[in-house]
Design a protein around this nucleic acid. Structure first.
Length: 447
RNA sequence: GAGGUUGUAGCUCAGCUGGUUAGAGCGUCGGAUUGUGGUUCCGAAGGUCGGGGGUUCGAACCCCCUCAUCCUCCCCA
Protein backbone atom coordinates (compact mmCIF):
# COMPACT_ATOMS: atom_id res chain seq x y z
CA UNK A 1 0.00 0.00 0.00
CA UNK A 2 1.71 3.18 -1.16
CA UNK A 3 1.04 6.68 0.12
CA UNK A 4 -1.95 8.33 -1.51
CA UNK A 5 -1.31 11.23 -3.84
CA UNK A 6 -3.04 13.67 -6.16
CA UNK A 7 -2.91 13.83 -9.95
CA UNK A 8 -0.40 16.30 -11.31
CA UNK A 9 -1.62 19.88 -11.26
CA UNK A 10 -4.56 19.32 -8.87
CA UNK A 11 -4.86 20.41 -5.24
CA UNK A 12 -6.88 19.91 -2.08
CA UNK A 13 -8.18 23.00 -0.37
CA UNK A 14 -8.23 23.05 3.42
CA UNK A 15 -10.81 24.96 5.49
CA UNK A 16 -8.96 28.27 5.43
CA UNK A 17 -8.28 28.03 1.72
CA UNK A 18 -11.91 27.26 0.99
CA UNK A 19 -13.02 30.26 3.02
CA UNK A 20 -10.62 32.45 1.09
CA UNK A 21 -11.70 31.00 -2.22
CA UNK A 22 -15.33 31.56 -1.31
CA UNK A 23 -14.50 35.15 -0.47
CA UNK A 24 -13.26 35.57 -4.05
CA UNK A 25 -16.21 33.72 -5.60
CA UNK A 26 -18.77 35.55 -3.47
CA UNK A 27 -17.29 38.93 -4.29
CA UNK A 28 -17.24 38.31 -8.02
CA UNK A 29 -20.66 36.69 -8.01
CA UNK A 30 -22.20 39.66 -6.23
CA UNK A 31 -20.87 41.99 -8.91
CA UNK A 32 -22.19 39.76 -11.70
CA UNK A 33 -25.61 39.71 -10.07
CA UNK A 34 -25.60 43.47 -9.64
CA UNK A 35 -25.11 43.86 -13.39
CA UNK A 36 -28.05 41.60 -14.17
CA UNK A 37 -26.29 38.36 -15.06
CA UNK A 38 -28.06 35.08 -14.40
CA UNK A 39 -26.47 31.90 -13.10
CA UNK A 40 -25.73 28.90 -15.27
CA UNK A 41 -23.99 25.60 -14.61
CA UNK A 42 -23.01 23.01 -17.18
CA UNK A 43 -21.58 19.48 -16.77
CA UNK A 44 -17.91 18.87 -16.09
CA UNK A 45 -17.84 16.67 -19.18
CA UNK A 46 -18.97 17.49 -22.67
CA UNK A 47 -19.11 15.43 -25.82
CA UNK A 48 -15.68 15.56 -27.38
CA UNK A 49 -17.29 16.79 -30.60
CA UNK A 50 -18.45 19.90 -28.71
CA UNK A 51 -14.93 20.67 -27.55
CA UNK A 52 -12.57 19.70 -30.35
CA UNK A 53 -11.67 22.27 -32.97
CA UNK A 54 -12.72 25.21 -30.80
CA UNK A 55 -9.36 26.06 -29.29
CA UNK A 56 -6.94 25.45 -32.16
CA UNK A 57 -4.58 22.51 -32.51
CA UNK A 58 -2.80 23.43 -29.28
CA UNK A 59 -6.08 23.48 -27.41
CA UNK A 60 -7.09 20.08 -28.72
CA UNK A 61 -3.89 18.65 -27.33
CA UNK A 62 -4.66 20.14 -23.91
CA UNK A 63 -8.14 18.59 -23.69
CA UNK A 64 -8.58 15.84 -21.13
CA UNK A 65 -10.30 12.95 -22.84
CA UNK A 66 -12.47 10.44 -21.02
CA UNK A 67 -12.04 6.80 -21.98
CA UNK A 68 -15.30 5.14 -22.98
CA UNK A 69 -16.85 2.83 -20.41
CA UNK A 70 -17.04 -0.91 -20.82
CA UNK A 71 -15.04 -2.84 -23.38
CA UNK A 72 -13.75 0.22 -25.17
CA UNK A 73 -11.35 -1.76 -27.34
CA UNK A 74 -14.20 -3.77 -28.83
CA UNK A 75 -15.28 -0.79 -30.93
CA UNK A 76 -11.82 0.68 -31.41
CA UNK A 77 -10.66 1.57 -34.88
CA UNK A 78 -8.60 -1.54 -35.73
CA UNK A 79 -6.53 0.19 -38.40
CA UNK A 80 -5.65 3.11 -36.17
CA UNK A 81 -4.75 0.71 -33.38
CA UNK A 82 -2.52 -1.34 -35.66
CA UNK A 83 -0.84 1.81 -36.95
CA UNK A 84 -0.52 3.21 -33.42
CA UNK A 85 -2.19 6.37 -34.71
CA UNK A 86 -3.42 7.96 -31.47
CA UNK A 87 -5.28 10.83 -33.11
CA UNK A 88 -7.20 8.55 -35.38
CA UNK A 89 -7.85 6.03 -32.62
CA UNK A 90 -9.17 8.65 -30.22
CA UNK A 91 -12.60 9.09 -31.79
CA UNK A 92 -13.37 5.40 -31.46
CA UNK A 93 -12.34 5.01 -27.80
CA UNK A 94 -13.28 8.37 -26.24
CA UNK A 95 -16.46 10.23 -26.93
CA UNK A 96 -16.33 12.66 -23.98
CA UNK A 97 -13.89 15.13 -22.52
CA UNK A 98 -13.58 17.54 -19.59
CA UNK A 99 -14.55 21.13 -20.27
CA UNK A 100 -11.66 23.36 -21.25
CA UNK A 101 -13.36 26.69 -20.65
CA UNK A 102 -16.84 28.01 -19.88
CA UNK A 103 -17.49 29.91 -23.08
CA UNK A 104 -17.88 26.98 -25.44
CA UNK A 105 -20.24 25.09 -23.12
CA UNK A 106 -22.23 28.35 -22.84
CA UNK A 107 -22.45 28.61 -26.61
CA UNK A 108 -23.60 24.99 -26.74
CA UNK A 109 -26.24 25.74 -24.10
CA UNK A 110 -27.51 28.76 -26.01
CA UNK A 111 -27.91 26.77 -29.20
CA UNK A 112 -29.72 23.95 -27.40
CA UNK A 113 -32.07 26.37 -25.60
CA UNK A 114 -32.46 29.11 -28.18
CA UNK A 115 -36.27 29.10 -28.10
CA UNK A 116 -36.43 29.50 -24.36
CA UNK A 117 -33.98 32.36 -24.08
CA UNK A 118 -34.85 36.02 -24.01
CA UNK A 119 -32.11 37.84 -25.89
CA UNK A 120 -29.83 39.43 -25.03
CA UNK A 121 -29.06 36.69 -22.54
CA UNK A 122 -26.64 37.58 -19.76
CA UNK A 123 -25.25 34.65 -17.87
CA UNK A 124 -22.54 34.13 -15.31
CA UNK A 125 -20.86 30.84 -14.53
CA UNK A 126 -18.38 29.92 -11.81
CA UNK A 127 -17.03 26.42 -12.29
CA UNK A 128 -13.79 24.49 -12.67
CA UNK A 129 -12.17 23.80 -16.02
CA UNK A 130 -9.40 21.36 -16.90
CA UNK A 131 -6.38 21.69 -19.14
CA UNK A 132 -3.63 19.11 -19.62
CA UNK A 133 -1.03 21.85 -19.49
CA UNK A 134 2.32 21.49 -17.78
CA UNK A 135 1.72 22.95 -14.30
CA UNK A 136 3.88 25.84 -13.11
CA UNK A 137 3.55 29.08 -11.19
CA UNK A 138 -0.02 30.32 -11.56
CA UNK A 139 -0.92 27.43 -13.81
CA UNK A 140 -2.93 24.42 -12.75
CA UNK A 141 -4.59 21.51 -14.49
CA UNK A 142 -7.82 22.08 -12.61
CA UNK A 143 -8.80 25.67 -11.97
CA UNK A 144 -11.86 27.85 -11.64
CA UNK A 145 -13.06 30.44 -14.07
CA UNK A 146 -15.69 33.02 -13.24
CA UNK A 147 -17.26 34.04 -16.52
CA UNK A 148 -19.84 36.66 -17.43
CA UNK A 149 -21.05 36.70 -21.04
CA UNK A 150 -23.79 38.43 -22.96
CA UNK A 151 -25.09 36.83 -26.11
CA UNK A 152 -27.51 38.25 -28.65
CA UNK A 153 -26.49 41.90 -28.80
CA UNK A 154 -23.67 43.82 -30.39
CA UNK A 155 -24.21 46.89 -28.22
CA UNK A 156 -20.96 48.37 -26.99
CA UNK A 157 -22.67 49.20 -23.72
CA UNK A 158 -21.76 45.66 -22.70
CA UNK A 159 -18.07 46.21 -23.31
CA UNK A 160 -18.31 49.19 -20.99
CA UNK A 161 -20.26 47.19 -18.40
CA UNK A 162 -17.75 44.36 -18.47
CA UNK A 163 -14.93 46.83 -17.89
CA UNK A 164 -16.91 48.19 -14.95
CA UNK A 165 -17.39 44.66 -13.65
CA UNK A 166 -13.64 44.10 -13.64
CA UNK A 167 -13.14 47.46 -11.97
CA UNK A 168 -15.78 46.88 -9.32
CA UNK A 169 -14.74 43.32 -8.48
CA UNK A 170 -11.08 44.17 -8.05
CA UNK A 171 -11.97 47.28 -6.08
CA UNK A 172 -13.98 45.10 -3.68
CA UNK A 173 -11.10 42.64 -3.45
CA UNK A 174 -8.82 45.63 -2.79
CA UNK A 175 -6.47 44.43 -5.51
CA UNK A 176 -5.11 47.21 -7.75
CA UNK A 177 -5.12 46.15 -11.39
CA UNK A 178 -4.65 47.47 -14.90
CA UNK A 179 -7.50 46.67 -17.26
CA UNK A 180 -6.03 46.50 -20.73
CA UNK A 181 -8.30 46.93 -23.73
CA UNK A 182 -7.78 46.65 -27.45
CA UNK A 183 -9.81 45.74 -30.50
CA UNK A 184 -9.18 43.00 -32.97
CA UNK A 185 -10.30 45.33 -35.73
CA UNK A 186 -7.46 47.67 -34.89
CA UNK A 187 -5.03 44.80 -35.12
CA UNK A 188 -6.53 43.87 -38.48
CA UNK A 189 -6.24 47.52 -39.50
CA UNK A 190 -2.53 47.35 -38.78
CA UNK A 191 -2.20 44.29 -40.98
CA UNK A 192 -4.13 46.04 -43.73
CA UNK A 193 -2.08 49.20 -43.42
CA UNK A 194 1.05 47.09 -43.68
CA UNK A 195 -0.38 45.32 -46.71
CA UNK A 196 -0.37 41.88 -45.09
CA UNK A 197 -4.01 41.13 -44.19
CA UNK A 198 -3.47 37.45 -44.99
CA UNK A 199 -0.75 37.30 -42.30
CA UNK A 200 -2.95 38.89 -39.66
CA UNK A 201 -2.61 35.96 -37.25
CA UNK A 202 1.17 35.74 -37.58
CA UNK A 203 1.48 39.46 -36.99
CA UNK A 204 -0.83 39.35 -33.99
CA UNK A 205 1.02 36.50 -32.29
CA UNK A 206 4.31 38.36 -32.73
CA UNK A 207 3.26 41.78 -31.44
CA UNK A 208 1.44 40.21 -28.49
CA UNK A 209 4.90 39.39 -27.16
CA UNK A 210 6.17 42.98 -27.16
CA UNK A 211 6.32 43.45 -23.41
CA UNK A 212 8.01 40.09 -23.04
CA UNK A 213 10.63 40.06 -25.80
CA UNK A 214 10.93 43.78 -26.60
CA UNK A 215 10.84 45.61 -29.94
CA UNK A 216 13.89 43.79 -31.30
CA UNK A 217 12.38 40.45 -30.44
CA UNK A 218 9.14 41.39 -32.15
CA UNK A 219 10.98 42.52 -35.27
CA UNK A 220 12.83 39.24 -35.35
CA UNK A 221 9.68 37.20 -34.80
CA UNK A 222 7.81 39.10 -37.53
CA UNK A 223 10.66 38.41 -39.95
CA UNK A 224 10.75 34.74 -38.96
CA UNK A 225 7.05 34.53 -39.75
CA UNK A 226 7.78 35.71 -43.29
CA UNK A 227 6.71 39.34 -43.00
CA UNK A 228 8.71 41.69 -45.24
CA UNK A 229 10.86 44.60 -44.04
CA UNK A 230 8.53 47.31 -45.41
CA UNK A 231 5.57 45.80 -43.62
CA UNK A 232 7.59 45.48 -40.41
CA UNK A 233 8.54 49.15 -40.61
CA UNK A 234 4.89 50.14 -41.02
CA UNK A 235 3.86 47.95 -38.11
CA UNK A 236 6.52 49.39 -35.82
CA UNK A 237 5.49 52.87 -36.80
CA UNK A 238 1.86 52.23 -35.92
CA UNK A 239 2.70 50.48 -32.63
CA UNK A 240 4.55 53.63 -31.59
CA UNK A 241 1.39 55.75 -31.90
CA UNK A 242 0.90 57.62 -28.63
CA UNK A 243 -2.90 57.56 -28.61
CA UNK A 244 -6.04 56.26 -30.25
CA UNK A 245 -6.42 59.54 -32.13
CA UNK A 246 -2.93 59.25 -33.58
CA UNK A 247 -3.91 56.01 -35.30
CA UNK A 248 -6.56 57.60 -37.47
CA UNK A 249 -4.27 58.64 -40.34
CA UNK A 250 -2.65 55.21 -40.46
CA UNK A 251 -6.07 53.63 -40.97
CA UNK A 252 -7.09 55.98 -43.80
CA UNK A 253 -7.36 53.01 -46.12
CA UNK A 254 -8.51 50.43 -43.65
CA UNK A 255 -12.24 50.45 -43.07
CA UNK A 256 -11.87 47.75 -40.45
CA UNK A 257 -9.23 49.72 -38.60
CA UNK A 258 -11.46 52.78 -38.53
CA UNK A 259 -14.33 50.69 -37.22
CA UNK A 260 -12.08 49.44 -34.43
CA UNK A 261 -11.23 53.00 -33.46
CA UNK A 262 -14.88 54.00 -33.41
CA UNK A 263 -15.77 51.08 -31.20
CA UNK A 264 -13.09 51.89 -28.67
CA UNK A 265 -14.10 55.55 -28.71
CA UNK A 266 -17.65 54.56 -27.93
CA UNK A 267 -16.60 52.29 -25.07
CA UNK A 268 -14.42 54.99 -23.56
CA UNK A 269 -17.30 57.46 -23.90
CA UNK A 270 -19.59 55.21 -21.87
CA UNK A 271 -16.85 54.70 -19.32
CA UNK A 272 -16.27 58.42 -18.97
CA UNK A 273 -19.78 58.72 -17.51
CA UNK A 274 -18.63 57.15 -14.29
CA UNK A 275 -15.08 57.12 -13.02
CA UNK A 276 -13.27 53.81 -12.55
CA UNK A 277 -11.15 52.96 -9.53
CA UNK A 278 -8.56 51.06 -11.50
CA UNK A 279 -6.62 52.15 -14.55
CA UNK A 280 -8.06 51.17 -17.91
CA UNK A 281 -5.44 51.34 -20.59
CA UNK A 282 -5.62 51.08 -24.35
CA UNK A 283 -2.88 48.60 -25.26
CA UNK A 284 -2.39 48.21 -28.97
CA UNK A 285 -0.15 45.17 -28.46
CA UNK A 286 -2.84 43.24 -26.62
CA UNK A 287 -3.86 40.38 -28.90
CA UNK A 288 -5.07 37.29 -26.99
CA UNK A 289 -4.93 33.84 -28.42
CA UNK A 290 -8.44 32.53 -28.81
CA UNK A 291 -9.13 32.94 -32.46
CA UNK A 292 -12.84 33.63 -32.13
CA UNK A 293 -12.46 37.15 -30.77
CA UNK A 294 -13.52 39.71 -33.37
CA UNK A 295 -13.98 43.04 -31.59
CA UNK A 296 -12.89 44.46 -28.26
CA UNK A 297 -10.53 42.35 -26.19
CA UNK A 298 -9.69 42.64 -22.51
CA UNK A 299 -6.96 41.49 -20.24
CA UNK A 300 -6.39 42.22 -16.56
CA UNK A 301 -3.03 42.24 -14.82
CA UNK A 302 -2.28 42.83 -11.14
CA UNK A 303 -0.22 45.86 -10.31
CA UNK A 304 2.76 45.24 -8.04
CA UNK A 305 2.75 41.48 -8.50
CA UNK A 306 4.28 39.32 -11.20
CA UNK A 307 1.62 36.94 -12.44
CA UNK A 308 0.23 36.19 -15.88
CA UNK A 309 -3.15 37.67 -16.70
CA UNK A 310 -5.74 37.22 -13.96
CA UNK A 311 -8.64 37.90 -16.31
CA UNK A 312 -9.38 38.10 -19.98
CA UNK A 313 -12.18 38.29 -22.47
CA UNK A 314 -13.57 39.91 -25.53
CA UNK A 315 -16.21 40.01 -28.22
CA UNK A 316 -16.96 37.27 -30.69
CA UNK A 317 -19.18 37.88 -33.69
CA UNK A 318 -20.10 34.29 -34.25
CA UNK A 319 -19.41 31.69 -31.61
CA UNK A 320 -22.64 29.74 -31.91
CA UNK A 321 -22.07 29.42 -35.64
CA UNK A 322 -20.00 26.29 -35.15
CA UNK A 323 -23.04 24.72 -33.48
CA UNK A 324 -25.30 25.56 -36.41
CA UNK A 325 -26.69 28.88 -35.24
CA UNK A 326 -24.83 31.67 -37.01
CA UNK A 327 -25.13 35.38 -36.46
CA UNK A 328 -25.41 35.60 -32.69
CA UNK A 329 -22.81 38.03 -31.37
CA UNK A 330 -21.50 37.86 -27.83
CA UNK A 331 -19.08 39.44 -25.46
CA UNK A 332 -17.70 38.19 -22.19
CA UNK A 333 -15.00 38.28 -19.58
CA UNK A 334 -13.40 35.70 -17.33
CA UNK A 335 -11.80 35.98 -13.90
CA UNK A 336 -9.02 33.51 -13.11
CA UNK A 337 -9.94 32.75 -9.50
CA UNK A 338 -6.90 30.64 -8.72
CA UNK A 339 -4.46 33.26 -9.92
CA UNK A 340 -6.39 35.95 -8.09
CA UNK A 341 -5.99 33.79 -4.99
CA UNK A 342 -2.24 33.53 -5.50
CA UNK A 343 -1.94 37.29 -5.98
CA UNK A 344 -4.09 38.14 -2.94
CA UNK A 345 -2.05 35.73 -0.87
CA UNK A 346 1.24 37.10 -2.19
CA UNK A 347 0.21 40.65 -1.37
CA UNK A 348 -1.37 39.68 1.95
CA UNK A 349 -4.73 41.13 0.96
CA UNK A 350 -7.12 38.54 2.39
CA UNK A 351 -9.29 39.95 5.19
CA UNK A 352 -8.38 38.70 8.67
CA UNK A 353 -11.94 37.99 9.63
CA UNK A 354 -12.51 35.15 7.15
CA UNK A 355 -11.46 32.41 9.55
CA UNK A 356 -14.02 33.15 12.28
CA UNK A 357 -16.86 30.78 11.72
CA UNK A 358 -17.57 29.36 15.19
CA UNK A 359 -18.23 32.12 17.73
CA UNK A 360 -18.04 30.23 20.98
CA UNK A 361 -16.99 26.95 22.51
CA UNK A 362 -18.59 25.37 25.56
CA UNK A 363 -16.25 23.79 28.08
CA UNK A 364 -17.42 21.49 30.87
CA UNK A 365 -15.87 19.55 33.75
CA UNK A 366 -17.82 16.36 34.18
CA UNK A 367 -20.72 14.35 32.85
CA UNK A 368 -23.42 16.48 34.47
CA UNK A 369 -22.03 19.84 33.36
CA UNK A 370 -21.37 18.38 29.90
CA UNK A 371 -25.11 17.81 29.61
CA UNK A 372 -25.71 21.38 30.69
CA UNK A 373 -23.16 22.68 28.17
CA UNK A 374 -24.90 20.68 25.46
CA UNK A 375 -28.25 22.16 26.42
CA UNK A 376 -26.87 25.71 26.37
CA UNK A 377 -25.20 25.11 23.01
CA UNK A 378 -28.49 23.88 21.56
CA UNK A 379 -30.25 27.06 22.65
CA UNK A 380 -27.58 29.23 21.02
CA UNK A 381 -27.78 27.20 17.81
CA UNK A 382 -31.53 27.61 17.80
CA UNK A 383 -30.85 31.35 17.85
CA UNK A 384 -28.62 30.98 14.81
CA UNK A 385 -25.24 31.22 16.50
CA UNK A 386 -22.38 28.91 15.40
CA UNK A 387 -21.33 26.96 18.47
CA UNK A 388 -19.16 24.03 19.42
CA UNK A 389 -19.16 21.84 22.50
CA UNK A 390 -15.80 20.38 23.49
CA UNK A 391 -16.25 16.62 23.12
CA UNK A 392 -14.69 15.59 26.45
CA UNK A 393 -15.45 17.24 29.76
CA UNK A 394 -12.39 17.67 31.98
CA UNK A 395 -9.21 19.70 32.01
CA UNK A 396 -9.66 23.27 30.94
CA UNK A 397 -6.13 23.48 29.57
CA UNK A 398 -6.92 21.31 26.59
CA UNK A 399 -10.18 23.09 25.95
CA UNK A 400 -8.47 26.47 26.01
CA UNK A 401 -5.75 25.26 23.66
CA UNK A 402 -8.36 23.99 21.24
CA UNK A 403 -10.15 27.34 21.26
CA UNK A 404 -6.88 29.16 20.63
CA UNK A 405 -5.95 26.90 17.73
CA UNK A 406 -9.37 27.20 16.13
CA UNK A 407 -9.39 30.96 16.55
CA UNK A 408 -12.72 30.87 18.37
CA UNK A 409 -13.29 34.27 19.97
CA UNK A 410 -15.24 33.18 23.07
CA UNK A 411 -15.25 30.29 25.50
CA UNK A 412 -18.13 29.53 27.85
CA UNK A 413 -17.23 27.63 31.01
CA UNK A 414 -20.13 25.64 32.40
CA UNK A 415 -19.34 24.28 35.83
CA UNK A 416 -21.36 23.19 38.81
CA UNK A 417 -22.13 26.74 40.01
CA UNK A 418 -23.10 27.96 36.55
CA UNK A 419 -25.35 24.95 36.00
CA UNK A 420 -27.21 25.60 39.24
CA UNK A 421 -27.70 29.28 38.40
CA UNK A 422 -28.52 28.77 34.71
CA UNK A 423 -25.53 30.87 33.70
CA UNK A 424 -22.16 30.49 31.98
CA UNK A 425 -18.75 31.93 32.70
CA UNK A 426 -17.96 33.79 29.47
CA UNK A 427 -14.38 34.61 28.56
CA UNK A 428 -13.36 36.85 25.68
CA UNK A 429 -10.24 35.25 24.26
CA UNK A 430 -8.88 38.41 22.74
CA UNK A 431 -9.16 40.65 25.80
CA UNK A 432 -9.13 38.08 28.59
CA UNK A 433 -12.26 39.66 30.08
CA UNK A 434 -14.52 37.32 31.96
CA UNK A 435 -18.12 37.65 33.15
CA UNK A 436 -21.05 35.60 34.37
CA UNK A 437 -24.06 35.69 32.06
CA UNK A 438 -27.43 34.03 31.74
CA UNK A 439 -27.97 32.07 28.57
CA UNK A 440 -30.47 34.60 27.19
CA UNK A 441 -28.02 37.41 27.84
CA UNK A 442 -25.35 35.36 26.04
CA UNK A 443 -27.63 34.99 23.02
CA UNK A 444 -28.24 38.71 23.08
CA UNK A 445 -24.53 39.40 23.15
CA UNK A 446 -23.51 37.04 20.32
CA UNK A 447 -26.65 36.97 18.19
C1' G B 1 4.93 18.55 -26.33
C1' A B 2 10.70 20.43 -25.32
C1' G B 3 14.37 21.74 -21.55
C1' G B 4 15.98 22.28 -16.50
C1' U B 5 15.29 22.05 -10.74
C1' U B 6 14.11 19.68 -6.40
C1' G B 7 12.27 15.30 -3.47
C1' U B 8 15.36 13.15 3.92
C1' A B 9 10.14 13.30 10.52
C1' G B 10 3.58 16.70 10.19
C1' C B 11 6.54 21.60 8.37
C1' U B 12 11.44 24.09 7.11
C1' C B 13 15.93 21.98 6.25
C1' A B 14 21.26 19.67 7.74
C1' G B 15 23.57 15.03 6.50
C1' C B 16 31.49 15.74 4.33
C1' U B 17 35.10 12.18 -1.50
C1' G B 18 29.76 6.17 -0.65
C1' G B 19 31.44 3.88 5.65
C1' U B 20 28.38 1.69 12.32
C1' U B 21 22.32 2.88 15.08
C1' A B 22 20.08 9.30 9.52
C1' G B 23 20.07 14.67 12.83
C1' A B 24 18.29 19.92 14.21
C1' G B 25 14.58 23.73 14.76
C1' C B 26 9.47 24.29 14.71
C1' G B 27 5.04 21.49 15.37
C1' U B 28 2.51 17.15 17.82
C1' C B 29 1.61 14.22 22.31
C1' G B 30 2.36 13.52 27.79
C1' G B 31 3.81 15.79 32.45
C1' A B 32 5.02 20.10 35.87
C1' U B 33 -0.66 22.67 36.45
C1' U B 34 -7.90 18.12 38.75
C1' G B 35 -11.86 25.85 37.31
C1' U B 36 -8.43 29.23 32.88
C1' G B 37 -4.93 28.99 26.68
C1' G B 38 -1.11 31.48 23.66
C1' U B 39 5.17 31.93 28.28
C1' U B 40 8.70 28.54 30.64
C1' C B 41 10.77 23.76 32.06
C1' C B 42 11.02 18.23 31.70
C1' G B 43 9.97 13.97 28.80
C1' A B 44 8.14 11.05 24.59
C1' A B 45 6.48 9.58 19.96
C1' G B 46 7.34 10.22 14.96
C1' G B 47 11.63 7.99 8.91
C1' U B 48 10.04 1.88 3.45
C1' C B 49 15.64 8.89 2.98
C1' G B 50 9.25 9.86 -3.13
C1' G B 51 8.79 4.63 -5.53
C1' G B 52 11.25 0.50 -8.35
C1' G B 53 15.64 -1.63 -10.28
C1' G B 54 21.08 -1.64 -10.70
C1' U B 55 26.56 -0.89 -9.29
C1' U B 56 29.22 -2.00 -4.55
C1' C B 57 31.80 -5.70 0.92
C1' G B 58 28.65 -1.41 2.03
C1' A B 59 23.96 3.56 -1.06
C1' A B 60 20.13 9.16 1.65
C1' C B 61 24.74 9.97 -1.50
C1' C B 62 26.68 6.86 -7.85
C1' C B 63 23.74 4.86 -12.53
C1' C B 64 18.88 3.70 -15.06
C1' C B 65 13.55 3.87 -14.94
C1' U B 66 9.22 5.93 -12.72
C1' C B 67 6.10 9.36 -9.84
C1' A B 68 5.58 14.13 -7.98
C1' U B 69 7.32 19.38 -7.43
C1' C B 70 8.95 24.13 -8.91
C1' C B 71 10.72 26.93 -13.12
C1' U B 72 11.51 28.28 -18.59
C1' C B 73 9.56 27.72 -23.66
C1' C B 74 4.77 27.02 -26.17
C1' C B 75 0.06 28.58 -24.77
C1' C B 76 -2.99 30.58 -21.39
C1' A B 77 -6.68 32.01 -16.31
Amino acid sequence: MSKPSLPEGTRDFGPEQVRRRNYIFDTIRAVFVKFGFQPLETPAMENLSTLTGKYGDEGDKLLFKILNNGDYLKDADADALAQRDSNKLLRSIAKRGLRYDLTVPFARYVVMNRHALALPFKRYQIQPVWRADRPQRGRYREFYQCDADVIGSDSLVYEAELAQIYDEAFRLLRLPVVIKINNRKILFGIAEAAGIPEQFMDMTVAIDKLDKIGPDGVRKELAERGIGPDAIATIENILAAPSLEALRPAFAHSETGQKGLEELDRVFRYLSQSPLHNEIRFDITLARGLSYYTGCIFEVAAKDFAMGSIGGGGRYADLTGVFGMPGLPGVGVSFGADRIYDVLEGLNLFPETLDQSVKILFAAFDDATHDYAFACASRLRAAGIAVEVYPEPGKLKKQFEYVAKRNIPYIAITGETEMQNGTVQLKNQATGEQQTLGVEELIGLLG
